Simulated assay, not measured.
Amino acid sequence: MPDVNLSDLRAFAAVARHRSFRRAADAQGISRSALSHALRSLEQRLGVRLLHRTTRSVAVTEAGEQLLRRLAPMLRELDDMLEAISHGMHELAGTLRINANEGGARWLLRHAVPAFLERHPRVLLDLVTEGRLVDIVAEGFDAGVRLAESVPQDMVAVPFGGKARFIAVASPAYVEAFGRPATPQDLQNHRCIRQRLPSGKPYRWEFSRDGQEIAVDAPGTFILDNNGLMVEAAIQGLGVAYVPEPYARDALADGRLQLLLPGWSPPFPGLCLYYASHRHVPPALKALIAIMREADHSG
C-alpha cells in the first residue's frame, strides 16, 4: 500500500475542489509552492497523475476523480469527529455544507435556518445556491436540495415543503391589453418571458390536464435565468411568466399579478434534501433534517 500522509491528501482535495492552486493555498493557509510540492509527492507515491496543470487552469484526471469521490466524504467525517471531540460530544460543531437551488435555499432560510443557527451556534452552515446540478460528494457537500425529479437515484432523499407546481402569470395591465389565454396553445399569440436553464437551453413550458400533456416553446423576445426576476418582469407588464408558485404568491395575493391557465398546472412532487447513501450522516445534517421535519409538521 502506498505510504501517503493526510496533509497531502487534504492538499489534493483542496486543489481538486477549487480547481486553482492559488485559491486552494489560501484556503489551506500554505504557500502555492508548498501545495505544489505536496501534490507532486502524492502523485509520485501513488504512481498516477491526479491533476492536469497548465499555466491557466487545473483539471482533475480520471484517477483524480475516483480518488476525490471516495476521499471527500472521509475527510468530512474525520473533521466532524475531531470537532466533536474538541468541543464536547454533546454540542454540535464543525461545518455543514449544503448545495441548493434558489427555491430550496429560500425555503430553508424561511423555515429551518433560523432555528438551526439558534440551537447549534458552533456549527458553520455553508449554504451554496446554484442552478446546475452538481456531484455533491465530489465537490465536498454534505447534502443537496433539488426538485425530487432531479435527485440522483443513488441518493437518500428527504422530501419537504409539500408538493409544487409551476404557474403562468401576467399583470392586470398585460391581460387587459393582450387578453387571457384559454389553452396553452394560445400562448403562441402572446409575449412570453422566457427562461434559460443552467444548461443554457431555453425551458419549454410544460402543462397538463386530464392526462393531456403539452410542452410549449414559449415565444418572446426577452429571456431570463432567475425566477424572481421573471416575476418582477411580469409585474411590469413585460409579458407572461411561468414560475414556481411560491415566487408569485405575494403578487397574486395583492393583485399585481393574475393567474392564467389555472386548470393546466397540477401539483407534482416538490423539493428534497438528499445525501449519499454510502456515507455516515453527519450529526449536524441529522439535526437540520429534524428541524425541517418540524417545520413541515407545524406548517
Rank of each mutant, 00 (worst) to 15 (best):
140 G>W: 03
153 Q>C: 09
294 E>I: 09
40 R>E: 08
217 D>W: 07
98 I>E: 06
197 L>P: 00
203 Y>T: 06
232 E>R: 09
261 L>A: 08
280 H>Y: 04
264 W>D: 06
161 G>R: 03
36 S>N: 03
101 N>E: 13
177 A>F: 02
16 A>D: 14
261 L>K: 05
46 L>K: 03
95 T>S: 01
281 V>F: 02
289 I>C: 06
274 Y>K: 05
62 E>Q: 05
275 Y>I: 12
109 L>S: 10
264 W>I: 00
203 Y>H: 04
226 N>G: 07
85 I>S: 02
175 V>M: 08
102 E>Q: 08
153 Q>T: 13
115 A>W: 00
93 A>M: 04
233 A>R: 12
205 W>D: 00
84 A>Q: 13
48 V>A: 00
269 P>I: 12
175 V>T: 10
203 Y>C: 14
121 P>M: 04
267 P>F: 01
259 L>H: 13
85 I>K: 00
265 S>H: 09
53 R>P: 08
111 H>N: 14
100 A>I: 11
238 L>C: 04
229 L>P: 01
299 G>H: 09
195 Q>T: 15
107 W>G: 11
288 L>Q: 03
121 P>V: 05
191 R>D: 02
36 S>R: 03
253 A>W: 06
229 L>I: 08
13 A>D: 02
298 S>D: 13
229 L>Q: 15
100 A>L: 05
